[in-house]
Amino acid sequence: MSAPDIARAVRRMAHEVIERNKGADRLVILGIPSRGVEVATRLAAAIAEVEGTEVPTGTLDITMYRDDLRRQPTRAPLPTRIPTGGIDDRIVVLADDVLYSGRTVRAALDALSDLGRPKAVRLAVLVDRGHRELPIRADHVGKNLPTSTSERVMVRLAGVDEADEVRIAAGETP
């Protein structure tokens, strides 16, 4: 995906979110670090452009909730920032760059439940590459990218990286 492709995908998702929730009033968008935060920011901006309302955004770190915490060297947790007003009775849109096994989203749902009780939780991802290991699906997808498990999906987003780009790279042997 090129930069314009990404921009178009975000705009489309913004429209879907608004349509699905009949506006943007009760929305909170939480990005999962690191690139999910950038996706959340862009999604909020696109919604603001369409609806004229500022959607509260925040970040939701899932480090502590990962199911592979013990198998990895310790990672320093990244910030969790919940916008004022919290998430109780809100519609929370979780935003991430790539949806793959579903484990990150599972962790995010756990993290969310420790922070409050949203009315509903939706999932928006820039890329869905398939190969789910848990019964999880995305509500809003920028682009479905069929891949093999040996491949890697490289997402680069300006703000975190130098430029916008999504490409599939030949994977290293796992």
Binding site: D61, T63, Y65, L69, L78
Partner: peptide, 16 residues
């Protein structure tokens, strides 16, 4: 700093 925020949450529990 991140842990400090947990102190002000309603559910003061992390599963780590």
């Amino acid at each position: 700093g991140e842990m400090h925020d947990v102190q002000h949450r309603e559910v003061k529990k992390l599963p780590a």
